[in-house]
Design a protein around this nucleic acid. Structure first.
Length: 823
RNA sequence: GCGAGAGUGGCGGAACUGGCAGACGCGCGAGACUUAGGAUCUCGUGGGCAACCGUGGGGGUUCAAGUCCCCCCUCUCGCACCA
C-alpha cells in the first residue's frame, strides 16, 4: 500500500499523459453513449465473440482472467471496425461452493456474497475498458435465468435423458455431508481432515452416453486446439471390438466379455470378473467362497485413490469356478481381481496374458498359463501387443473349419468377429469410457430440480410453474442425513402434486455448477426473453459462437457438457447448429514474477487493480498481450509493464506537446514514400496478426512505427490518424483521447479499420545476402528490379575475397531473397 | 507407462511454405540534457582478441536446417489398470 502511493505520486504531469483522467473519461463516454450495445442487423455480417464467464470469487479478477478478456476485446473492437455486427457479452457463473461454504461459516447468505463479488468483478472489468454490451449481463443465479436451466432439465427428463440411480458419493461421516471431489485432499476432507468413504446414494444422472458418438464425430466440425480435441476424444474413449459369451463349465449361464482383441481369443487362459460382478456368487465354489468374500470386501473398501496407490501390484483370488472358451472348448479358471472394473465394458474379461500387459503381469504373479497366439515378440519378457506386426498362430478350430493363422492381428480382427457373429458366439461391439453424468449435488446454492416425489416416483413440475425458486433460509448447514440443506426446510419441502393432488416431497438435491454454464451463450443472444429460452430468429442470426476464449482447465468437462446440452437443444429445435463453439482458444497461465504459479502463500499474486492504479488500463492491456503468445504459459513482469507504458507515452508525445495541445509537428502535408510504406506495412502486419491472435507481434510492429515516426520532424495526419485506429483495439482510452485531440469527433471505435495498399508494402530497394558455401559473406543493396545476372555479377565482386580464383560449381539464386556460391 | 505441447541471448520472446538467427521489449553499458534522475533522448549490447562458434544433446538430408528425418535428454499439461 505504501509503495504504491510512492509510485502514484503525481509525476504524471511531466509525462504529459494522465491515464486516470483519460480512462475514467472515456469509460464514462462509452457508458453514456451505449457505444457497445448491439442488436441484430441483417445488413451486417455477425461475429459472436465469447469469454468463458467467471465464477465471481471473493478475491476479484486476476491478471490471468485479463489476458483472455483483453484478447477477445481486441478482436471484438477490431471486428466492429471491420464492419461486423459483434456480440460480446459478459455474465456470471455465480452458483458454486465457495459462497456456500462462506455462508456455513458466517451465516451470510450466498446471494449477498455473490452480489458483492459480482459488483467487484464488474467494476474491475469496466476499469479495463472491456467493450461488453452490459445490457446483456446475466447471472446463473437469477431465477429468470435458472428458470430456463430448469426448463432444459424438464426436456432432458421428457426424453429419458435424466434418470435416478444409486451412485456412490463421497460421504464424510464426521461432517455429516457429501463432499465434492474438489473438497477432498489425499482422501481426507479438506475441512478438518476427516475420513471420506464411498457410499451409494440416490442421484440424478444425465444420459450423456446416448450422445457419445455424436460428441466424438462432431469434433470434426470445430477448430479447437489439438490437445483439447485429444482430451475430449480420450474422455469419450470409444473402442471397437466384440462381445463374446463364455458359458460356465459346471452350471447354467455365461460370462459375457468385451474385448478389442478377438484375434487373441485362442490365447485366453483364464477369465477375470470385477469383484462387484453379479456372477461372482454363482461361480464361486464352496472351498473358495470365504476367500472370495474377503477379497470382495477389501476391494469395496478401497477408495479410488487407494486403487491408484496400489497400481503396481495386481491382486486377485481364484473363484473355484470355470468357464468354457467358445472357440476351442477349453476350461478356463475364473478369477476375481480389482484390475477389472465393473464400470467398463461388461465388468468381465477374457485374459490373454501373452498379448495384454495387465493380464501378463497378473499371470506372472499367480503362475497362470501364458500362451502365444501372435508370433513376433518374446512373451517370456513381456506381452506382445502390436497389432500391425506379428503373425497369428495356433488359432484354428480343431475340426479345421475356421482359421486365422498366418494373418496379421489387424487383418484377423474383422475376420474372427464376422465368424463369431455367424456362429452366434459373439457380436461386434463398441464401448465408451464416457459414463453418464452425475448431475446432483447435496447443496443449497444451486438450481433446485423442478421435480416432485409422489409415491416414490419422480414427477416433473409443469413448465408453467417455473422457475422453482430457491427457498430463503438462514441455515446453510448440511442436513446431516446426506441430503442438502433444503431437506431442513419443511415448509418448502412438503407440497401437493398439482396433477394428482397427492402429498408430495420436493427433490432436495440441486444441480451442479456446470448446469448454468452449459447454455449461457444462448441466453446472451436474448437475455430478457420471458417466453422462450432464446428467440429462434435471433438464435439463427448469432449462432454459432465464432471465437471462444477461456482456460484449458475446462478442456473436458464444461466443453463436453455444453456440447451435450447443445445437441439435445438442437434435437428439440431450440438451436440451429450442431456445435456451439466454432473456434476455441485457451489463454496460457500467467505465472508470478518468480516464474512460479501465483498463490497467496507464495506472495507472488499480481493484483490488476494495483497495476491499473500505477500504469493505467491501456498499459496493462497492452502488456498482457505483449508478454508472449496468447496460449503460452509465461511469467508476469512489472518491468515489462513499464516498458509498454513508455511506448504509450512515446505515442502520446508523437502528437501532443508539453502543454497538452496537438503538437505542431502534426502536419497535413502528403507523407513521404517512406512514411507511407511504413504505415502500410504496419497496417498489414497488425491486421494479419490480430486475425491470427498474434497480439505480441502486432504490438512490436506498432512500436517500430512509433520509433520511426518519433525521428520524423513532420508527422503527417495521413499516417498518424490510421495508426491511432490500429492502436485503438489494444489501448482504446489513449486512442480515443488522441483521436479527439486530432480534432476528430465520434468514437474511434466506430471508425472503419484502415486498409493497406499491397503495392505500398514493398520497398523499391532490397538487401540480398551473399553466401559462399552457405556462409554469409556480404550483403548487396540493389534496386528491386535488378536482374539476376546483374545481382550475380555484383555479388561476385562483393564476395571476391572468398571466391578468389576458384571455380564456382554452382550458383543458387533465390529470387529477391539470397544468392549462394558453391565452390 | 500412454497421449498432447514445448526447449532460441542475462530475461520475456521474434523468425511466412528450409533462405541474413536473435525483430520488439526488459535488463545492462556509454553519452547528451540536467541542481538532480528510477524522467527523456542518442548510441551500443549472443559468445570469442581473432579465424570462427552459436537455436536442449547426438547423428543425417540439403548449396543452405531453429525449421525436414532418425535416436536421446529435459520441462509443462492431460489420462492413468478402460480389456
Amino acid at each position: 500500500m505504501l509503495e504504491s502511493s510512492v509510485f502514484s505520486a503525481p509525476t504524471t504531469m511531466s509525462k504529459g499523459y494522465d491515464h486516470r483522467t483519460i480512462e475514467a473519461k472515456w469509460q464514462q463516454y462509452w457508458d453514456q453513449h451505449r457505444t457497445f450495445r448491439v442488436t441484430e442487423d441483417p445488413g451486417k455480417p455477425k461475429f459472436y465473440c465469447l469469454d468463458m464467464f467467471p465464477y465471481p470469487s471473493g478475491s476479484g479478477l486476476h491478471v490471468g482472467h485479463l489476458e483472455g478478456y483483453t484478447a477477445t476485446d481486441i478482436v471484438t473492437r477490431y471486428k466492429r471496425m471491420r464492419g461486423f455486427n459483434v456480440l460480446h457479452p459478459m455474465g456470471w457463473d455465480a452458483f458454486g461452493l465457495p459462497a456456500e461454504q462462506y455462508a456455513v461459516k458466517t451465516g451470510i447468505h450466498p446471494a449477498m456474497t455473490t452480489a458483492e463479488n459480482i459488483a467487484t468483478f464488474k467494476r474491475q472489468m469496466k476499469r479495463v475498458g472491456l467493450s461488453y454490451d452490459w445490457e446483456r449481463e446475466l447471472s446463473t443465479t437469477d431465477p429468470q435465468y435458472y428458470r430456463w436451466t430448469q426448463w432444459i432439465f424438464l426436456k432432458l427428463f421428457d426424453r429419458g435423458l435424466a434418470y435416478v440411480a444409486e451412485v456412490p458419493v463421497n460421504w464424510c461421516p464426521a461432517l455429516g455431508t457429501v463432499l465434492a471431489n474438489e473438497e477432498i485432499v489425499d482422501g481426507k476432507s479438506e475441512v478438518g481432515g476427516f475420513d471420506v468413504i464411498r457410499k451409494p446414494m440416490r442421484q440424478w444422472v444425465l444420459k450423456i452416453t446416448a450422445y457419445a458418438d455424436r460428441l466424438l464425430e462432431d469434433l470434426k466440425l470445430v477448430d479447437w486446439p489439438p490437445s483439447t480435441l485429444e482430451m475430449q476424444k480420450n474422455w469419450i474413449g470409444r473402442s471397437i471390438g466384440a462381445e463374446v459369451d463364455f458359458s460356465l463349465a459346471d452350471r447354467r449361464g455365461a460370462i459375457r466379455v468385451f474385448t478389442t482383441r478377438p484375434d487373441t481369443l485362442f490365447g485366453a487362459t483364464y477369465m477375470v470378473l470385477a469383484p462387484e460382478h453379479p456372477l461372482v456368487d454363482v461361480v464361486a465354489s464352496e472351498e473358495q467362497k470365504a476367500a472370495v468374500q474377503a477379497y470382495r470386501e477389501t476391494a469395496m473398501k478401497k477408495s479410488d485413490l487407494q486403487r491408484q496407490e496400489l497400481d503396481k501390484e495386481k491382486t486377485g483370488v481364484f473363484t473355484g469356478g470355470y468357464a468354457v472358451n467358445p472357440v476351442n472348448h477349453e476350461r478356463l479358471p475364473i478369477w476375481i481381481a480389482d484390475y477389472v472394473l465393473m464400470s467398463y465394458g461388461t465388468g468381465a474379461i477374457m485374459a490373454v496374458p501373452a498379448h495384454d500387459e495387465r493380464d501378463w503381469a497378473f499371470a506372472r504373479q499367480y503362475h497362470l498359463t501364458i500362451r502365444e497366439v501372435i508370433a513376433g515378440g518374446n512373451i517370456k519378457e513381456a506381452a506382445f501387443t502390436d497389432t500391425d506386426r506379428g503373425t497369428v498362430v495356433n488359432s484354428a478350430t480343431s475340426d479345421g473349419s475356421f482359421s486365422i493363422n498366418g494373418r496379421t492381428p489387424s487383418e484377423a480382427i474383422p475376420k474372427i468377429t464376422e465368424w463369431l457373429e455367424k456362429q452366434g458366439k459373439g457380436i461386434r461391439a463398441v464401448n465408451y469410457k464416457l459414463r453418464d453424468w452425475l448431475f446432483a449435488r447435496q447443496r443449497y446454492w444451486g438450481e433446485p430440480f423442478p421435480v416432485l416425489w409422489v409415491d416414490g416416483e419422480a414427477r416433473p413440475l409443469p413448465e408453467e410453474q417455473l422457475p422453482l425458486v430457491l427457498p430463503e433460509t438462514g441455515n446453510f448447514k448440511p442436513s446431516g442425513t446426506g441430503e442438502s440443506p433444503l431437506a431442513n426446510l419443511d415448509a418448502w419441502l412438503t407440497t401437493i402434486d398439482p396433477i394428482t393432488g397427492k402429498p408430495a416431497r420436493r427433490e432436495t438435491n440441486t444441480m451442479p455448477q456446470w448446469a448454468g454454464s452449459c447454455w449461457y451463450y444462448l441466453r446472451f443472444i436474448d437475455p430478457k426473453n420471458s417466453t422462450h429460452l432464446v428467440d429462434p430468429i435471433k438464435e439463427r442470426y448469432w449462432m454459432p459462437v465464432d471465437l471462444y476464449i477461456g482456460g484449458s482447465e475446462h478442456a473436458v468437462l464444461h466443453l463436453l457438457y455444453a456440447r451435450f446440452w447443445h445437441k439435445v437443444l438442437f434435437d428439440i429445435g431450440v438451436t440451429s447448429t450442431p456445435e456451439p463453439f466454432l473456434k476455441l482458444v485457451h489463454q496460457g497461465i500467467v505465472l508470478g514474477e518468480d516464474n512460479q504459479k501465483m498463490s497467496k502463500s507464495r506472495g507472488n499474486v499480481v493484483n490488476p487493480d494495483e497495476m491499473i492504479d500505477q500504469f493505467g488500463a491501456d498499459a496493462v492491456r497492452l502488456y498482457e498481450m505483449f508478454m508472449g503468445p496468447l496460449e503460452a504459459m509465461k511469467p508476469w513482469s512489472t518491468r515489462g509493464v513499464e516498458g509498454v507504458t513508455r511506448f504509450l507515452e512515446r505515442v502520446w508525445r508523437l502528437m501532443v506537446d508539453e502543454q497538452g495541445r496537438l503538437s505542431s509537428v502534426i502536419v497535413s502535408t502528403v507523407p513521404s514514400l517512406y512514411q507511407q510504406r511504413l504505415l502500410h506495412h504496419t497496417i498489414k502486419k497488425v491486421t494479419e496478426d490480430i486475425e491470427a491472435l498474434r497480439f505480441n507481434t502486432a504490438i512490436s510492429q506498432m512500436m517500430i512505427f512509433t520509433n520511426e515516426m518519433t525521428k520524423a520532424h513532420q508527422r503527417p495526419r495521413a499516417v498518424i490518424e490510421p495508426f491511432i485506429l490500429l492502436l485503438s483495439p489494444f489501448a482504446p482510452h489513449v486512442a480515443e483521447e488522441l483521436w479527439n485531440l486530432l480534432g476528430r469527433q465520434s468514437s474511434v471505435s466506430q471508425q472503419p479499420w484502415p486498409i493497406y495498399d499491397p503495392a505500398m508494402t514493398v520497398s523499391e530497394r532490397m538487401t540480398i545476402p551473399v553466401q559462399v558455401n552457405g556462409r554469409l559473406r556480404a550483403k548487396l543493396e540493389v534496386a528491386i528490379d535488378t536482374s539476376p545476372d546483374e545481382i550475380e555479377r555484383l555479388a561476385r565482386a562483393e564476395a571476391a575475397e572468398w571466391i578468389q580464383d576458384k571455380e564456382t560449381k554452382k550458383v543458387i539464386y533465390v529470387d529477391k531473397k539470397l544468392i549462394n556460391f558453391v565452390i
